[in-house]
Amino acid sequence: MSVGGSTRIKKICTCGKKYLVRAELGGKRGKCKCGSVFTVPKHAAKPAARTKKCPWCSVKIEISRVSCQDCERRKMRTSLANRTLPAVEWKIASIAVTTAMLVLVCAIWQSYLNETHFFLLYGCFLALCFLGGILTRVIGFTRKLVMVIALGFIVVGAVRYSHDVTLGIQQFHGLRLMMVFGTIAIALAPFIDVLLGGIEKRSEESHLSNCSAAEWGNIRSGYSGPSITPGYGSHYVGTSGFMAGGCTSSSCGGCAG
């Protein structure tokens, strides 16, 4: 049980430096690093809630509002930007479907190609798509690159056909399946890490964190975005096993300690 103690107030010096001050010091003088002396404000009783601060920019807003007009506008802009995302995914899906159909058509065109050669060519394109998928993630190329490669596959077929190089493949049994599902593989290539991430996540869940408090403290799973750097709010668990036992950090997000 916590008894006694004092509250804290924030004081910003004219130079911009911020301080957390014990409320009991209200009315007394404090000295800033910049040399100037300031008076600590007296801890005001909670204002009769008519207004509050915008959570993002601290501008005073009406109590009924969630955030200020500027922040709401920014939110709108962000959500608009986010809304284009599914549209992009949709475009990619439609490209994939079109590609699948075109590849099927081309496959029939290419049905005179030698089977081994065809498999080789096809394998090369799949490898390219996979590489493209990696590039979209690592270097930041757009996913369209993968689609371009996939469409390239068809173009090659079309060019071969126009040049009358359609010798080869006579048997078209398993190949048809490969043509259809292969394009699905092409479409999924950029998401390979997400797919692997899902498997990885499940295996990770079986390992408990070093910090015993993590078992009950905070929920932190499922994130598959950028890596998490240790620091404020992270578990006091260094790569070096600095925190081998329980967590003692006050700034630990995993436990309140």
Partner: peptide
């Protein structure tokens, strides 16, 4: 195993 990390 993590093959690659998203860069963004």
């Amino acid at each position: 195993m993590k093959l690659f990390k998203p860069q963004s």
